[in-house]
């Protein structure tokens, strides 16, 4: 049994401890956002946050993540109460097929939590591990900039609050 903290809740996981986190998220916890894309850590579709840092969950075994704080896109907000990054992606209509988008949201969230006012070059560098095949890149860039603005505004309005929970 492995205890995993996912989106603020502890889960007892009864699986081979070598199992990459992705399959535990999808098959045991029934979370959809992290996606299987390559299983090789090359495309970023499976990204989640571990202690605020983006990790490729398809090659990260759960045994390595005990005691780490894991957040998935589901932990950033739901369809009715999207988090600022999710809202920015909706507002910019930054998706075509949308399959890669949760990974981009994770990369963006990790960036903006550390770097609230990223330069264009910093955004591109942060998003480089993620692949999009539909060509939604320009909208994704706009969404990240929009999210940065929104998060700064909300932090300014509520200085004690934690951006994007």
């Amino acid at each position: 049994m492995i205890t995993l903290s996912v989106n603020g809740r502890d889960h007892q996981i009864d699986a081979d401890p070598a199992t990459p986190l992705l399959y535990v998220l999808r098959d045991d916890l029934h979370l959809n956002a992290a996606k299987f894309g390559c299983g090789l850590g090359q495309c970023g579709s499976c990204m989640v946050l571990a202690d605020g840092l983006p990790v490729v969950s398809c090659v990260t075994p759960v045994v390595a993540l005990e005691g780490r704080r894991i957040r998935t896109v589901e932990g950033l907000g739901g369809a009715d109460d999207p988090g600022p990054v999710q809202r920015a992606f909706i507002d910019e209509q930054a998706a075509q097929c949308g399959y890669c988008i949760p990974g981009f949201i994770i990369s963006a969230q990790a960036l903006l939590e550390r770097t609230p006012s990223p330069s264009d070059a910093e955004i591109r560098t942060a998003l480089k591990p993620n692949l999009c095949r539909c060509g939604t890149h320009i909208r994704i860039l706009r969404a990240v900039r929009r999210a940065a603005d929104a998060m700064r505004t909300s932090v300014a309005a509520n200085p004690g609050g934690e951006g994007g929970q």
Binding site: N32, V73, A79, Q86, F89, A95, G98, I101
Partner: peptide, 28 residues
Amino acid sequence: GVRRIDIPAKVTGGPAYVQDLRLPGMVH
């Protein structure tokens, strides 16, 4: 420019793809 009906679920982890289909008793 009506907003795409599928995007909110796709950006919040709603089931959206055949990959997300989980049927009772399903095997891999």
